[in-house]
């Protein structure tokens, strides 16, 4: 019962208490300098001059206009991202074709491009000196330095998130369930709604959360295409920049603290989706091993 061989190494595998606490303390000190204290700074500066000034900054018409624009951008970007993510994941994981790895790499491409370049490609395409600039000008269509440009730049930077979450999961789940459904006579939509979607819903939600957070917070790309027209093309992060550069620090940090709350909520939902996704995956793995599938 008391086998010393089983206990001995297990105890020795862990560092002595002083070393353990030293390592924990250094890790926490590092995280404090770069994460925790900066987080605290936002709230302390936002409420520095009392709740009244914080509320005044949050209720300012310019802030309200920025929030409205950001919400509009999110509402336009999300459905397209979800549609693309589902289509890309379906075609990549359910079928075999040449160039699959290339396609997967190309989907990740926007993540490696600098936000400034992500914005400038649309200026090069649709700007006054851009490839389509003269044609757009003659038809009086404004894309860059207007809302459509902001939507396009946000679409570009949030492009991979949903697909990236779905592809590995759907690859791991395999096609057995879908194939069984077909042999039982299910139609395409039935397969998707009844068989695939219930398995991938948490990963899908996770992708949606990530792309929403990025769409709300994107700064570099949007900054290039926005043109900074007050009340018209200012999103919430750009509004923070303007307030900060005008030395209106309390207002800047008040609006910033709203963004911090959104990102903390994102982290919480992300954790929840991760946990749920793992549960669904484990359940499926059990069924799979019982059925003796791949």
């Amino acid at each position: 019962m008391n086998d010393p061989r089983a206990v001995g190494p297990e105890l020795k595998r862990h560092e002595t208490a002083p070393i353990r606490w030293l390592l924990i303390a250094s890790a926490i000190a590092f995280l404090s300098l770069f994460l925790f204290i900066p987080l605290l700074v936002v709230f302390i500066n936002a409420f520095r001059d009392g709740l009244a000034l914080f509320l005044a900054a949050a209720a300012d018409p310019q802030t309200a206009a920025a929030i409205r624009l950001t919400l509009l951008v999110v509402a336009l970007v999300l459905p397209l991202n979800v549609l693309f993510g589902l289509c890309a994941a379906w075609s990549i994981t359910k079928f075999d074709f040449r160039g699959k790895n290339l396609l997967t790499t190309l989907i990740d491409l926007p993540l490696t491009v600098s936000p400034v370049i992500s914005g400038s490609i649309f200026v090069l395409l649709f700007g006054a000196q851009g490839a389509l600039g003269p044609w757009l000008a003659s038809h009086q269509i404004r894309i860059v330095f207007a809302v459509p440009g902001i939507v396009l730049a946000t679409l570009f930077v949030t492009f991979p998130y949903v697909a990236r979450e779905l592809i590995p999961l759907m690859q791991a789940l395999g096609n057995d369930n879908e194939e069984t459904a077909i042999s039982l006579g299910a139609g395409s939509w039935q397969i998707f709604w009844r068989v695939t979607l219930p398995n991938i819903k948490w990963a899908l939600l996770y992708g949606i959360i990530l792309s929403t957070a990025r769409a709300i917070g994107e700064f570099g790309a949007v900054s290039v295409v926005s043109g900074h027209i007050r009340g018209k093309t200012i999103t919430v992060p750009l509004h923070v920049e303007i307030l900060y550069n005008e030395y209106n620090f309390v207002a800047a940090f008040s609006v910033a603290s709203l963004l911090v709350l959104v990102s903390l909520l994102t982290l919480f939902l992300k954790r929840l989706a991760e946990w749920k996704r793992q549960q669904v995956f484990l359940e499926n793995a059990e069924h799979g091993s019982q059925g003796g599938g791949n």
Binding site: L31, L35, F36, P38, L39, V41, V42, P115, A213, I216, G217, E218, F219, G220, V236, P237, L238, V240, E241, Y244, A252, F253, A256, L259, V260, S263, L264, T266, L267, K270
Partner: peptide, 16 residues
């Protein structure tokens, strides 16, 4: 909280 830099808008990180 380790994921915060991914979720936090870069402008907020910047001013803070």
């Amino acid at each position: 909280l380790v994921d915060l830099p991914i979720a936090l808008p870069t402008a907020v990180a910047g001013i803070s």
